[in-house]
Design a protein around this nucleic acid. Sequence first.
DNA 1: AAAACAAGGTTACAAGTGTAAACTATATTT
DNA 2: AAATATAGTTTACACTTGTAACCTTGTTTT
Lengths: 124, 124
Amino acid sequence: MKKEVHISESEWSVMEFLWDYPLSTIGEIKKALVNTDWSESTIKTLVRRLVTKQAVAINDEESTFRYYPLLSRQDCRLKETKSFINRVYNGSVSMLVTSLAADSSLTEKETEELLSLIDKMGKE
Amino acid sequence: MKKEVHISESEWSVMEFLWDYPLSTIGEIKKALVNTDWSESTIKTLVRRLVTKQAVAINDEESTFRYYPLLSRQDCRLKETKSFINRVYNGSVSMLVTSLAADSSLTEKETEELLSLIDKMGKE
DNA sequence: AAAACAAGGTTACAAGTGTAAACTATATTT
DNA sequence: AAATATAGTTTACACTTGTAACCTTGTTTT
């Protein structure tokens, strides 16, 4: 029986850090997220909610809890990507890619990367 | 001064229809959305919220209002796509495309389309 | 005309999200 | 030990979203 885990925008910031540094403490998370301007309370709330959602688990071998992700970044990304494509592009991947390619506001670098990627893929 | 218009998942269904059939009435919208199982009330709420958000406007030349989109589908798609990529892929378009290409759960048809698209683009 | 229906307007209510204060308990520093 | 800092727990509160009922008024059908 699968929980419909939805990770909100703010929660993603926490997850990103935990994916890079699993088994972090609140203090470490807080330090990593200084740029966000969130109060410590807010960060604790986000972590708690992620735990409730079973997206994050607690290791309490030490006196201070350490938090680590229970879901892989790739899985979460795919899940979000799918629901996004369904919502916005009627489920059509190619419409998304077309739209991306037509987006003139991509930076030079992004366009370049996209094209090179596309090139690489064509060869496989 | 720009409103931060966010169109929710349910609201997208209404917008999609209005993009295809601008100047529709509630009754027409309702007919188009039978598949959703929403009550008429729900549909009216969604339309009203879209009007409040200024994503949709009202033409009241006739006795029954006709609704039409104020935002283009392409603009909304781009906006959603950008915020999605920022949230989930740290703003990296190429990470998204890589992830898509690596997704084994794409259908044959999707993969095919993606590759052909990629192929076409490579030639431009 | 009376009844039925369609459309517009008002109100509702629970879940999720962004954001945080306050309280408590534990650990570290003076 | 007292003071301080850190972490964990509880509570809060406004806004958005999904979902809808109800009320009123105008229109169509019997």
